[in-house]
Design a protein around this nucleic acid. Structure first.
Length: 268
DNA sequence: ATGACCGCCGGGGGCGGA
């Protein structure tokens, strides 16, 4: 048993945290349940539930000993955090950034504040949704600068919909200037790092390690993907990181999500 | 190679995703 101290009974335990855009929790319910049984993460952050809160299949999580905090939405968006450890300070919405869509939830788990995000995709640089995406990032930046500090245990994870480096897209020439790979999006990503966060997954991944493959164009079999799901962590969390791995097997299943789960392993 | 997929709602296609 961990030592109980002033910081609480779970402080500093090893944890496996997973981020997974499930592309409909209803359609992916069986895969998610099997993933929990097989991988048993401490925390599972999900995006694109496409379900309102009262339609969420909660028994998948409760029957396996997980708490569940959801911020659902019908048809589009929706985020949730499942955790074996209690969640406190659960907060939903990014008022100046999400236009009422369900794209933001954070909670404190074992002393770590975890922001689980489904950032807007943006469609194309000349589309109004692109400005919405940039505004979402500005609101995110404002929130962390106002409410958090890089000196605390902090994780920003989720489908961030930005591929920050050349090695994060399968074809640099084809993607140059294309939404999710533009300079201004990379600058929004870098601004989060400059504030005091690190890309915790990148050091553990070979170049061209992806987390998303489009359903179209036979993308997955030819590995035409993007690395757009991330873990950005503060220094105190970075010191505990022992690995980060893409669960590609989930993308290869029948009725798979177009995203694979991305995990982050933390030591004591 | 962005056309072609998948899931949504609703009961037929249109929209959104990245």
């Amino acid at each position: 048993m961990p030592v109980v101290d002033a910081l609480g009974p779970h402080q500093g335990e090893s944890m496996k945290i997973v981020s997974w855009n499930v592309n409909s929790l209803k359609a992916r319910a069986e895969h998610v349940a099997n993933f929990l049984d097989r991988v048993s993460p401490t925390v599972l952050c999900m995006q694109e539930l496409k379900l309102q809160d009262d339609k969420v299949p909660r028994e998948i999580f409760s029957s396996r000993g997980y708490f569940l905090e959801t911020h659902g939405q019908r048809t589009y968006n929706g985020v949730a955090i499942a955790s074996k450890l209690p969640m406190t300070q659960v907060t939903r919405n990014l008022p100046d950034g999400d236009e009422g869509e369900s794209r933001y939830i954070h909670a404190q788990i074992d002393g770590i504040t975890i922001l689980n995000l489904y950032c807007p995709q943006g469609r194309a640089v000349d589309n109004p949704k692109f400005e919405y995406k940039l505004g979402f990032y500005d609101a995110l930046q404002a929130r962390i600068e106002k409410d958090f500090s890089p000196s605390q245990d902090l994780i920003i994870t989720g489908d961030l919909n930005i591929a920050p480096h050349d090695n994060d897209v399968y074809d640099v020439a084809k993607m140059t200037g294309v939404c999710s790979f533009t300079d201004i999006e990379k600058q929004k990503f870098q601004r989060l790092l400059d504030w005091g966060l690190s890309d915790a997954s990148q050091p553990y991944q070979e170049p061209k390690t992806f987390t998303f493959w489009d359903y179209r164009m036979n993308s997955y079999p030819r590995d035409a993907g993007y690395r757009i799901d991330h873990f950005l962590v503060s220094d105190s969390v970075l010191a505990r990181v022992q690995g980060s791995h893409v669960h590609r097997v989930e993308r290869g299943r029948e009725k798979a999500s177009d995203h694979a789960p991305l995990d982050l392993d933390l030591g004591f």
